[in-house]
Design a protein around this nucleic acid. Structure first.
Lengths: 236, 236
DNA sequence: ATCCGTCTGTGCGCCAACACACATAGCAAC
DNA sequence: GTTGCTATGTGTGTTGGCGCACAGACGGAT
């Protein structure tokens, strides 16, 4: 994490939707940062000093098990915010936050966040609605983990990432995807090969390209649509 | 749902921990209700007119799939509250709430809830901290669904239920447990038989008795402890 | 006492995902 | 080029859970 590469206009959708007065109160406290792929922003149970509003980066929430296994429970892009525990009152959470796609974010010190949250204005309402959307995503992940195949889950994961990305290309090895989905690397290889054979994606050594988004949406389980619709409903 | 069988003292832990003044403001709006086993309190996506504070009942949050399959994402007992969407701002949620154990609850009309929530006092803080605890539970369910065996998950489910119960006996058929866990009925039969052979539980036709709670805790995966510790930390 | 519906036990074949082992194929640096 | 590292492909055997089919067992109602 270092100084932001770009100081361009804020592109986090929670922030851009704030009324002018509220945004102006927050703006002076916003600090641009940029993230590298794989960077750990929060450690499980660790101290959280800032809340992060991704703009071009994508953040993954991972649960780690004692035996080293891991599984992703949710993804955060420029529609959301990382660090809900800071306004929910818990201070910390028992999961890790990892950068899934390098890029920028704006961050806010915990105290500044809490002061603005306590004003009970649009900012508070936006954060709470977003939190509810995130709960839906986590819930659907739970169900999908139980009931659907690796291939369907890979589709879901690709679409969730693509939704939060400018480009059609993801930088991500099958090994890392396997960690996220909580499955074996070979399982991802197999599923990815099938998607490639059907012309939905192509990949070479950590570079995945979405070729046929409509095809992916046809192959994915209902979980993706449920979450997307709920995000649309709650975040407009 | 009908009039409450008992009008005894409030036993919901979110309510009992409120300072006197706040509780007195809420008390006149609290209405006792009682639930029968299997009753559906909220339908997925349906209108929510009240928020419910279980006292002796246990509520299950279920996601339903298009093909009729279902899976539980969380359990609510007297430590919590059903209907977080009413203060999170989303009005509704895409899951069903079902009574897992018959008993009583207190309910509050949505408007009364929102008025008190907007005062930004202890009540608001308690509700938000509880919501964070629930998020942890849902997250851990997601991970457990991916990584652990039916037997471990059955242990987790039994312990979560037992924690929210006065007695050592659960009224619940294996068929229903299977719906909750999102597995086959035979899978539950098999796992339950093993637990019975090890003397941890006994069951006959929908009556499950916890015989050796310590043994169950030894057989369960870490997921149970992580969630319990997080509940203790947040709701202490 | 009998009947009937519900709950639980069990067997069988099947398949997805697993664990482990190793083979190839890109890319990069020298 | 050659070397070396990382990413991906593939084979073999195992296993946990699924789907289906049906058998037994208990308990309440007549």
């Amino acid at each position: 994490m270092g100084p932001a590469v770009s100081h361009g206009p804020v592109k986090n959708r929670l922030l851009t939707k704030l009324p002018g007065a509220e945004y102006e109160r927050i703006r002076p406290h916003l600090e641009p940062v940029s993230f590298k792929l794989g960077e750990v922003i929060y450690e499980s149970g660790g101290q959280m000093s800032h809340i992060y509003f991704p703009t071009t980066s994508i953040i993954s929430l991972l649960y780690l098990m004692e035996n080293g296994a891991s599984a992703e429970i949710g993804v955060i892009g420029n529609e959301g915010v990382l660090g809900i525990a800071l306004f929910m009152g818990g201070e910390t959470v028992p999961n890790r936050a990892v950068v899934q796609s390098a890029g920028a974010a704006s961050r806010l010190k915990a105290e500044a966040l809490q002061i603005e949250f306590a004003r009970s204005g649009t900012f508070q309402r936006a954060l709470l609605r977003y939190t509810q959307a995130l709960i839906s995503q986590i819930s659907q992940t739970a169900v999908c983990n139980r009931l659907h195949s690796v291939e369907q889950q890979l589709c879901r994961w690709l679409l969730l990432s693509h939704d939060r990305l400018e480009s059609d290309e993801l930088i991500m090895t099958q090994e890392l995807i396997a960690n996220m989905l909580g499955v074996r690397r070979e399982g991802v290889t197999h599923a990815a090969r099938r998607l490639q054979e059907h012309g939905l994606i192509s990949y070479v050594r950590g570079h995945i390209k979405i070729l046929d988004r409509a095809g992916l949406e046809a192959a994915v389980c209902e979980c993706y649509r449920v979450v997307r619709d709920e995000y649309d409903r709650l975040l407009g």
